[in-house]
């Protein structure tokens, strides 16, 4: 009983210290307060990106906090694109994003046009071929001629930001499948072979923005996570430009030593 009460007090102290730390952080970053209430234009992001020492080549937006809302995700993707990120993986543990990728694709295409306007052809949005092939099999709502124009440029150019939709299947099950294939082919397995198999379509991650209620990875791409910076960002529905800028600032400052 006494220890139970002490436990409750300890939990309260932990909660209080976390809240105060959050508040202190907000005070220190007072200059970022407007970002918590407003969005960021492509131009604003590009101006900030010049100050970052490094930019992640591959960002994963991982959602584990319930049903996925596409609008905040589309916003995040546009901010990543404007920063110059080359690969963006959208992952959720229930496979909702991958399952309804054609709908999410439409959201992204609309946001692409809204954010980049006439310059969308010079910042192409390229979807994973596997996703495109899968979505062509499903009926999907028609897109505007402007969106079609952007999409056409993406596929033809083959450059720009590539979007991958992943779920649990690309995690442990992908490793198991690779081992099954090696057994079938009767070949020796080493790190290089497994790496070539597993990162053929989705490259290694540099930064993970984890939208979850608790700091747990929920099976997120174990092979790809090797040296990724992991930032837990709270619920994805409430994501603001401040969250994104904090994450990019933090990545820019971090020192990756790769064992050295």
């Amino acid at each position: 009983m006494l220890y139970g009460m002490l436990h409750a007090v300890l939990c309260f102290v932990l909660w209080l210290s976390t809240t105060l730390q959050g508040l202190w952080r907000s005070v220190r970053e007072l200059y970022m307060l407007p970002l918590a209430f407003s969005g960021l234009s492509v131009r604003q992001i590009q101006q900030r990106a010049r100050r970052w020492q490094k930019i992640p080549a591959h960002i994963c937006l991982a959602v584990t906090d319930g049903p996925v809302t596409y609008e905040p995700l589309a916003r995040l993707v546009m901010w990543c694109m404007a920063s110059g990120v080359k690969h963006i993986t959208i992952w959720d543990n229930q496979g909702l994003c991958k399952g309804s990728s054609s709908l999410l694709r439409q959201y992204l295409q609309k946001a692409h046009v809204a954010y980049f306007g006439s310059s969308c052809a010079s910042h192409p949005l390229v979807f994973d071929e596997a996703i495109l092939a899968a979505s062509q099999k499903r009926p999907c709502a028609s897109t505007t001629p402007e969106e079609e124009g952007c999409k056409g440029a993406d596929v033809q150019s083959g450059t720009g930001t590539r979007i991958h939709f992943c779920d649990d299947d690309e995690g442990r099950p992908a490793i198991v499948k690779a081992v099954q294939e090696a057994a079938r082919l009767q070949r020796n397995v080493d790190v290089a072979w497994l790496d070539a198999k597993l990162t053929a379509t989705v490259p290694e991650l540099d930064l993970v923005l984890m939208f979850s209620r608790e700091p747990v990875l929920h099976g997120l791409l174990p092979w790809h996570m090797r040296v990724a910076e992991i930032l837990f960002c709270g619920p994805h529905r409430h994501v603001t430009a401040r969250t994104f800028i904090r994450a990019m600032n933090s990545f820019s400052r971090c020192e990756q030593r790769f064992g050295r």
Partner: peptide
């Protein structure tokens, strides 16, 4: 204060609380 797994228990860390 580093926030990565650095190639440690990647498979086993899938359903683990991460405390940095």
């Amino acid at each position: 204060g580093e926030v990565r797994l650095s190639d440690f228990l990647l498979w086993q860390g899938a359903y683990v609380h991460l405390a940095f």
